[in-house]
Design a protein around this nucleic acid. Structure first.
Lengths: 144, 144
DNA sequence: ATCATCTATGTACAAATAACATATAGGTGT
DNA sequence: ACACCTATATGTTATTTGTACATAGATGAT
């Protein structure tokens, strides 16, 4: 993410042009997907998220733990303390049938979202073809 | 959007399984794109946004007008009152060179985002191939 | 053995973003 | 005069994410 980003604050006085670089609403489906493949725990899942573009010095732990506890509260995952193995105790999560359903819902939404982005990019390309510039906002990570 | 959606409130007491159906952070790039093609004004732009999936009884006017004023404050667009024509006066917006640059930045981010979504969908498909279910969360619009 | 470091989970608070409700006002048709 | 459509705008709340920090067991080095 752009270090000088003050732009998030759209409705306040700050000023910076770069988009904010969030992984908006993407943590939850990713966690569900990884848990669908294999039970795991927060700290390990944090690393796996890098596969989906959460690359900036690791995804925020707060986000991961919060999301996991939320998912458990709603019955989409279940956890048990795992005191075996090395290091501090881990909270091991398994996905439930409801969680798998939710993941399917997410997949569907993500596909729709992707199609909208495709459409945007197609129109953008069509309009700007030929006059593609060197980008000014170059080092941005994901914006939304 | 799902009418019963109470799920946005993830960290509160409410409960509903459906993703929230927002057009997260997409208004700004869309507005910039339309203005790059042709000067326009808020009310007209509102209609055009439906082309990109803002279908639910029109996108929130507050969102459009606030984004436009934000963009003007930062110099990405400029406006003039247009009192000619029928009906109340319109505030006609034109994109600036800086605005076009910002649009390119957005396009880049959107492309990156799209690639992440592609990757997610590919892995999801690979893992669930064969066992694709009838979706339980069926009537969702865009989630993020 | 105490200190630094890594693993692991978590909370509190603040900032950013979007949604919802409402206000204002000119124009058009009846 | 009235309803209705166009057009812009603001205030407040709800939702989501980010930043900072707290806790604590294990491991290895001095």
């Amino acid at each position: 993410m752009c270090k000088d980003n003050k732009r998030g604050e759209k409705y306040g006085p700050e000023k910076c042009e770069c988009p904010s670089g969030r992984m908006t609403r993407f943590t939850e489906p990713c966690l569900l997907f990884f848990l669908a493949k294999k039970p795991s725990y927060g700290y390990e899942l944090m690393d796996k998220l890098e596969q989906f573009g959460f690359t900036e010095g690791k995804p925020d732990p707060a986000m991961i733990y919060r999301t996991l506890r939320y998912l458990e509260k709603e019955g989409f995952v279940k956890s048990k303390w795992d005191t075996g193995g090395t290091g501090p105790a881990k909270r091991n999560y398994k996905i439930t049938a409801e969680g798998v359903d939710l993941l399917h819902g997410w997949a569907r939404s993500i596909r729709q979202r992707k199609e909208v982005l495709d459409k945007f990019i197609a129109r953008y390309k069509k309009y700007f073809k030929g006059k593609m510039p060197k980008f000014q906002y170059s080092s941005l990570l994901l914006t939304f």
